[in-house]
């Protein structure tokens, strides 16, 4: 493999989807220069507990707001959790600190967790939380159709990018794939 060979992010002209190409040797060596501190903390036990704590705090917060029904409160909790986790795990790419000279710039956090391995305990846990939250919320409420659709959509939006088949898949609807030449 040449030192900085780059597979261009090729896609068919009609397709809106492309796959993130494998890293060059230079990027790989920069990635392994330091452990990826950005993704390693998800394996800590405290990092698992904090999900439940945050959800609980969110629920209490929405409950104490005057005039908010149980349906709205659960929906708001669900949406804020899914929005937050989507932003954190699937939207933002790279590492916020300068540990690996930007060698992770093309990967989001979900892809950085456990070096991209699938079905690891941390990933299973992170997949379990939004589904469980959704099931619990539908159980304790009488959603009308609109609320139900909103909650289902929010859950699916964080479940699909977590699928192993979505690994390194990018959608580029408004912009062509980047070419780092």
């Amino acid at each position: 493999m040449p030192l900085d060979a780059k597979d261009p992010r090729r896609r068919r002209s009609s397709s809106l989807v492309y796959t993130e190409p494998p890293e060059s040797l230079e990027q790989l060596s920069d990635q392994s220069a330091l452990p990826n501190l950005n993704a390693e903390w998800v394996n800590a036990k405290g990092a698992w507990v904090i999900h439940f704590v945050l959800i609980l705090i969110g629920k209490i917060l929405f409950d104490i707001m005057p005039g908010v029904s149980q349906e709205t409160s659960w929906t708001l909790t669900n949406i804020s959790y899914t929005a937050g986790s989507y932003l954190m795990f699937h939207y933002v790419r790279g590492v916020p600190f300068d540990f690996n000279s930007g060698a992770y710039d093309n990967l989001n956090m979900w892809e950085q967790i456990d070096n991209g391995d699938q079905y690891t305990p941390a990933k299973k846990f992170l997949m379990f939380v939004p589904i469980a939250l959704f099931l619990v919320s539908t159980h304790y409420t009488h959603y009308d159709l609109t609320y139900f659709v909103i909650n289902t959509m929010a859950t699916i939006a964080v479940v699909i990018p977590k699928l192993p088949s979505a690994h390194r898949i990018r959608f580029s609807i408004f912009s062509p794939p980047p070419d780092d030449a």
């Binding site: 070096n115 391995d117 699938q118 079905y119 997949m127 379990f128 469980a132 959704f134 539908t138 139900f148």
Partner: peptide, 30 residues
């Protein structure tokens, strides 16, 4: 809640979660 479609969706999500939990881990590195 008198809506079999909802229950089907919930059941599907539940089964999917169970399947995901039980799947063995693997590496994507070549």
């Amino acid at each position: 809640q008198n809506d079999p479609v909802r229950s089907a969706i919930e059941l599907f999500l539940f089964l999917f979660a169970v399947r995901y939990m039980l799947a063995p881990s693997y590496s994507t590195q070549k």
